[in-house]
């Protein structure tokens, strides 16, 4: 089955980019959960969750290209996915406002 990526459209200005790797028995890796917002006519990635570097983590992405990385402990993929989506549920407006403020500086 391999790796698959797609875009989950949430509003006209908000979307998630998702990538899963699956085998016959189930999904084995969350390759990417990335919240993107349309800012001044361009889609910008604001926060990314992935399992690169061997651990599940969150990167807050800044306009200058730097990132804030935080490891997120988890016991299974469902917990990792739930954590990522719950954080986006609670913080999406904060992520967007923080990005826009940094952009103006």
């Amino acid at each position: 089955m391999g790796r698959k990526d797609w875009i989950e459209n949430l509003t006209h200005q908000d979307r998630l980019r998702v990538e899963f790797t699956a085998r016959k028995g189930g999904v084995i890796e969350i390759g990417l959960i990335q919240y993107e917002a349309e800012i001044e006519g361009q889609w910008k990635p604001l926060v990314r969750y992935d399992m690169a570097h061997g651990f599940f983590h969150r990167d807050i992405l800044k306009p200058d290209g730097t990132q804030e990385k935080l490891e997120i402990p988890y016991t299974d993929l469902a917990e990792a996915l739930t954590t990522a989506l719950e954080e986006i549920h609670c913080q999406w407006e904060f992520y967007r406002q923080a990005y826009e403020e940094r952009r103006r500086k």
């Binding site: 989950e8 699956a22 028995g25 989506l85």
Partner: peptide
């Protein structure tokens, strides 16, 4: 989306 992605984890054929 959350409901569907959790379903996909258990049922990869949904991809």
């Amino acid at each position: 989306t959350k409901k569907r992605l959790l379903h996909v984890l258990r049922n990869p054929s949904a991809l």
